[in-house]
Design a protein around this nucleic acid. Structure first.
Lengths: 190, 190
DNA sequence: GCTCGACTATACAGATCGGTATACTCGTCG
DNA sequence: CGACGAGTATACCGATCTGTATAGTCGAGC
């Protein structure tokens, strides 16, 4: 990726996230990045492609941050599950005062055939799988309970991201982590 | 409200919710409603005002449906809390295949001074207060535990609405209700 | 019968939308 | 030196955006 393309994508990410996708035009992206529209279309081809790369890049960065937290977590599935919430808390502190970019983008994209759609649902499905897999690694938790636990963790996590964006009450991710902890304490020997 | 205004608002609600606010122009609203732009601007004055009334009307209808479910619920705070989730399940079945309109609208509105902003945050704050108040009515639950419980219920509920919109797994509102039930069972004598 | 509010129809203004075209500069690499 | 990729600058296209203006239709109430 050329330097101008990187600058353009960085500007697009900030603008799309802060103001919404449809509210931001390519002229504005070009101006904010110090790049001409010609360069934008040479590198990306279309606004739609910029949107896709915006979401894909955020997804990639989130998964990288999450992997760091998972690697640094104490061994054991329960600590690793809590590490997911820690990662989200760290992420939100730096990247997310308006909630989840995937959820927000989904609100603006009606066409299920839009190439961004698979990025959005892909991340959510991946997160559910992660929660379910980690829950299944807990001693004494069978596949059925893992499904139930994974989905409950998913609900708490998604709810926390939304609550953070809406600023319903302070530090909802920390609150969700507490609740997840209680859930895990109750569900098995630990 | 005149008949044409009612038709226009109904069309706007459907279009805004399905496609997003910025993706829908007033010409399209007018055409879908069988109404001229002149009438639209005579009745509402601006697109911004249409957006505000779209959200306010949905809020009003949601609160009415919720009140019905709360009135029909068995007495006792625990049953009433579960009735909130039942109301959401019924609501989503009819009005919401794309999640929460307030959350979705918030994703598209960057200006905190936008008149729709207070409608959005107002409903969320109201829901948190409702959960907290109902939790506080449970025997043996003090004010501090009511706050904790209210916020946990809020997280589950918001998470369920998002998960429903994203179609992460089937019937997330029912799953959230189960989790809320377990939470309430564990938190007090009942 | 006449006024008045609600509504339709159409055209337009000024701005912005996504996207394209032409012409230029500059550093790098062979 | 010369070719080439990256980027700049600017102008433009057709379409669409919010919002306004003019002119006319229709039905109900006084």
């Amino acid at each position: 990726m050329t330097p101008a393309a990187r600058r353009a994508l960085a500007a697009a990410e900030r603008l799309f996230y802060d103001r919404g996708i449809h509210a931001v035009g390519v002229d504005l992206i070009a101006a904010e990045a110090g790049v001409t529209k010609k360069t934008l279309y040479d590198r990306f081809g279309s606004k739609e492609q910029i949107v896709v790369e915006y979401l894909a890049d955020r997804d990639e960065r989130w998964r990288a941050l999450l992997a760091e937290h998972l690697d640094a977590a104490p061994s054991g599935p329960r600590a690793r599950i809590l590490a997911v919430f820690d990662a989200s808390r760290a992420w939100m502190g730096e990247n997310g005062s308006k909630g989840c970019s995937m959820v927000n983008a989904h609100a603006e994209i009606s066409d299920p055939a839009h190439p961004a759609h698979s990025v959005i649902t892909g991340q959510k499905r991946w997160m559910l799988d992660l929660f379910t897999r980690l829950a299944g690694e807990i001693e004494g938790v069978g596949p059925e309970d893992a499904d139930r636990l994974g989905r409950a963790l998913m609900l708490l996590h998604e709810g926390a991201l939304v609550a953070h964006g809406l600023k319903v009450f302070p530090d909802p991710v920390a609150r969700a982590r507490e609740e997840a902890d209680a859930l895990l304490a109750a569900s098995a020997s630990g």
